[in-house]
Design a binder for these strands. Structure first.
Length: 640
DNA sequence: GTAGGGTTAG
């Protein structure tokens, strides 16, 4: 009677604390010898709880006086599902030591899976032999587990043979092998198998979508996605993740919208990809909406979701919320720390970024190469040369992380920004990597700050050899010449660009107002409120001029007269976006702009003045970093 | 028992 009541209570329990109460009731009513009830309790526990609560389940398990095979298997599977195959295996061996508990084929299939995930061929082969000896060689679950195990060992041929020789395979072993082909990047073998499967279910289709996406082939992934007659949460999530990973972020967001129209509810895995797309395009409003949705639905913020929130807020210019989410996370791994350090560095909060690095080390989290990119960027953005060197040399000496070209790039940037151009050049020549365009451009950028034409020319020769068709490289060089008033050389650069037919990447700036993103390119008149915006812009220019602003016409590359140059500067995309922002947001509120290229010198000067004249905090994300313009000055201290 | 998610130089 009581047993029945407890079973029904368990059936309806959805929260961990409910289950804990029911557990107390079980003990009180002496039902704790009833393995049937206890197995139900454990299963509900796993269904309702997160991996962190596995400890509680384990304590329940440890208290069970005489657990049967079913209960052992339930516990072994729980560890397997929570990415702890080591504990699964060790429980299996404990179970085997107790002779009164029979091991069934399911126990074996679980431990075989654990061997695969642990890459333990020693035990794996022993188990395979044992399975054959006791005549379980043609058990469906065992064979499926063997396929997964051998594939994980890298013996995918053996896995394939097992599948081929199975008498009555269902879809699962096919899907397992399919996923393994995808995991090792064998998309052609996956396709062969997919084509000759007796039938395909959603798992098969979703695996193929992910398979193409993971190789960067979003086109084929989308074709498969469009061909599926039925789509579930995982199909949508896979496709959204594919776009997010390929940095086709607007497409990812569009598909997310479509998913909602199709009435498919997103889960935390979907949210991670959507947040990463938001971060990429700087869609703060959308990102915030997702965050609210997570809180409203009490979705657990795990490491990956937490990291993507931290990253999204930082990339959308809202470093306060980024820090808030980071501080609220209950544990943080190297990804979470690196995202936070990187975010702080990009916002120019170098000291805080380095504090976070120290804290990470004191919490025994081992930094990786990405962490050091954040640390070195932090040093470079605030001009810490000696500290930068110390971190750089500590990478391999103290933390066993070997520097990559990215790290040398950061150090070149650190030296260059500090004006130590000759040392930067020497480092480029002595580093154990062939210098890439990014390294040379970093040096060239430093030459622009320090007006060093000589080193600029040497950097340019190398840069143009690697990237002859990137307009930004010529723009940088031309700016250096015009600063040095070497006008004939400016003309020469212009001629070079004309001769080899440079493709110009148009500068564009976007601003989000009321959850809608408005994008502007230079001279843009396509916005519905274009007339108002242009009127606002001339008012802004007039007010700035009254405050001493003189347009930097020398940095205009086109062959215009003075008036035309001034006009071109005045209609740069960031100025249009800011004019629109001033018109359409509340007085005193922060204006956030996302630009695809770097801000030009003239715009940087103008935005500083706008922040003072119009009493607005203006946060601009450019290609490299954030600029916080407040009351006439910029957080980058004109050091960018 | 099988499928989807996070940090990366300028």
């Amino acid at each position: 009677m009581i047993g029945k009541k407890v079973m029904s209570l368990l059936q309806n329990a959805t929260k961990l604390n409910q289950i804990i109460q029911i557990h107390a009731l079980i003990i009180k009513t002496s039902l704790d010898g009833n393995n049937f009830v206890l197995a139900k309790l454990l299963r509900r526990l796993f269904a309702c709880s997160s991996a962190n609560d596995l400890l509680y389940a384990r304590s329940v398990f440890d208290e069970i006086p005489s657990p049967d095979t079913f209960i052992w298997n339930t516990m072994i599977r729980a560890y397997l599902n929570s990415q702890n195959p080591q504990e699964s295996m060790s429980l299996f061996f404990q179970m085997r030591h107790q002779e009164c508990i029979p091991i069934d084929s399911y126990s074996l299939s679980l431990v075989i899976q654990a061997c695969g995930r642990l890459k333990d061929p020693g035990n794996g082969q022993k188990l395979h032999t044992q399975v054959l000896k006791i005549g379980l060689g043609s058990d469906l679950f065992v064979e499926t587990a063997l396929i997964e195990m051998y594939a994980k060992f890298g013996d995918i041929e053996i896995a394939r043979n097992i599948l081929d020789e199975m008498a009555h395979p269902d879809l699962v072993p096919y899907n397992v092998l399919l996923a393994e082909y995808v995991r090792v990047g064998e998309i052609n073998l996956a396709h062969d198998l997919f084509d000759r499967m007796p039938e395909r279910d959603l798992v098969s289709w979703n695996t193929m979508i992910h398979g193409h996406a993971s190789l960067g082939d979003v086109g084929t992934a989308k074709k498969l996605f469009d061909r599926t007659c039925e789509r579930d949460l995982i199909s949508w999530s896979s496709m959204i993740a594919a776009y997010a990973k390929a940095r086709q972020s607007n497409e990812a967001l569009r598909l997310f919208h479509e998913m909602q129209l199709a009435n498919v509810l997103p889960d935390k895995v979907t949210m991670v990809s959507v947040l990463s797309a938001c971060g990429d395009v700087g869609a703060l409003g959308m990102g915030k909406m997702i965050h609210e949705c997570i809180e409203r639905n009490r979705i657990e913020i795990d490491l990956k979701l937490g990291t993507s929130l931290v990253d999204m807020y930082a990339k959308c210019g809202d470093i306060d919320n980024s820090l808030r989410v980071f501080n609220g996370m209950n544990n943080r791994d190297v990804f979470a720390w690196s995202a936070m350090i990187m975010g702080l560095a990009n916002h120019g909060f170098g000291e805080l970024a380095l504090d976070h690095f120290s804290k990470m080390i004191s919490e025994d989290i081992k930094p990786n190469d990405v962490t050091f990119i954040g640390v070195l960027s932090a040093c470079s953005h605030i001009g810490l040369v000696d500290e930068g060197w110390t971190y750089f040399t500590s990478m391999s000496k103290v933390y066993d992380v070997s520097p990559k070209i990215e790290h040398y790039g950061c150090v070149v940037d650190i030296l260059g920004r500090a004006g130590r151009l000759q040392e930067a050049m020497e480092l480029i020549k002595s580093m154990p990597f062939a210098p890439d365009a990014i390294v040379w451009r970093a040096l060239l950028g430093a030459c622009r700050i320090y007006k060093n034409v000589e080193i600029a020319e040497e950097a340019t020769v190398n840069l143009l050899e690697l990237e002859p068709h990137v307009d930004g490289n010529y723009v940088l060089l031309s700016n250096i010449y015009s600063q040095a008033k070497e006008w004939d050389k400016v003309v020469n650069v212009r001629r070079m660009m004309k001769n080899i037919n440079i493709q110009k990447v148009p500068g564009s700036s976007s601003i989000e107002v009321d959850n809608a993103v408005h994008e502007f390119v230079a001279g843009d008149q396509s916005h519905p409120e274009s007339k108002k915006i242009l009127r606002m812009l001339s008012e802004i220019t007039a007010r700035l001029k009254a405050n001493g602003y003189a347009p930097l016409t020398a940095s205009v590359l086109q062959d215009f007269d003075e008036k035309e140059k001034e006009n071109a500067l005045a209609h740069h995309s960031e100025k249009l976006a800011i004019a629109f922002g001033l018109l359409s947001t509340a007085p005193g509120s922060t204006i956030r702009i996302v630009k695809n290229l770097r801000v030009c010198d003239d715009c940087h000067i103008a935005i500083k003045l706008i922040s003072r004249t119009y009493k607005r905090r203006i946060i601009v994300r450019d290609r490299n970093r954030f600029h916080h313009f407040v009351n006439g000055s910029c957080s980058c201290k004109d050091y960018w």
